[in-house]
Design a protein around this nucleic acid. Sequence first.
DNA 1: ACATAAGCTGAGGCACCCCTCCGGTTGTTC
DNA 2: GAACAACCGGAGGGGTGCCTCAGCTTATGT
Lengths: 184, 184
Amino acid sequence: MEASLEGIARDAGVAIGTLYRHFPTRLDLLLAALEPRLREFADGSKKALEIDDPWDGFVSYLENLFRVQAGDRGFNDFLSRRFPGNADTERIHDQMCQQIEDVLTRAQDAGQVRPDITLADIVNLIWSNGRMIDATTATAPTAWRRSLYLILDAYRAERAHPIPEPPMTEKQLYDAMVHLSTTA
Amino acid sequence: MEASLEGIARDAGVAIGTLYRHFPTRLDLLLAALEPRLREFADGSKKALEIDDPWDGFVSYLENLFRVQAGDRGFNDFLSRRFPGNADTERIHDQMCQQIEDVLTRAQDAGQVRPDITLADIVNLIWSNGRMIDATTATAPTAWRRSLYLILDAYRAERAHPIPEPPMTEKQLYDAMVHLSTTA
DNA sequence: ACATAAGCTGAGGCACCCCTCCGGTTGTTC
DNA sequence: GAACAACCGGAGGGGTGCCTCAGCTTATGT
């Protein structure tokens, strides 16, 4: 996301004008580069959704998400942000959010995930994981799995203690994601 | 950490040369700006360490840490990174790590925090929290408390589930922190 | 009052980066 | 093989940021 377009053109062995010709905006390029990842992610998600046990499905969904996130810096950057005004990315994000809510609600209805968790908490998880991946891919590339399995113990219904802070509202969450796309 | 020095000088109503005169490097400036935060943090830590119950002390320590982190972007940036070669920052970081280990070990010895947690896991927490704060300060400034109390449920010793991934080694952790100071 | 020190300024050199645009190259079609 | 379209290159204008340094201003001390 922060890569220099001139550097990308150089690495691609192509002039800067050509890069702009094919991808008028940085987001166009990112989306094109992300296509295989999005497919990979979708495949994993499909498998996760087919798992009978709701808890296992929930875990599998997150593990797939985090794995793909860890494997691609662009995807990692993309996941945490919203790009208001771009219909493509908004659709992708909306679909993901819907999927997360589905898999989460199913596990909650089964009494396996604590009921006070919301989509915003999972997005938090994505942010957190993204930062961890930034820090560790170079030096401890599988470290993200540890924090995933650790946080899962917080999500189990039977271990739940009350949380003295409400989840973010939908608007707060959206604004936060937009904020990340304009600053960090 | 990413602020433009020229912008800082402008905001301070001073020429760029003057800024450089007082603070030859960006790190010098950061440390000077951070001094009150470091003191505030130290005060809170002291109170936390005086709490009798090891679990409560652990919680209080983290809550203090996260609160200060949420209140100051510079401190937030500073916390996640290591600046190799700078004796001052290395000392501060080493002290913090030592403190964290103390408060953590005490709670583990009391059987209140699960024994498989290490310093590296707490540093993960700091990274995660830092990212969350970047995302939410503008829109949901107290959201960090929620994720703190959520993760605490994962840290409780009772009914802990095994984690299929070892903690980072000391070297991995150090390298990751240095990595963040040169890239993100 | 004068010398010396300390402090401040901002232009300027260098390095990136973004994005545009025009001239040149390659390909296609009849 | 001519006309046309599609494609590519890269110089260049505009912007920002880093950091230095020569010259000016303001203490300080005797």
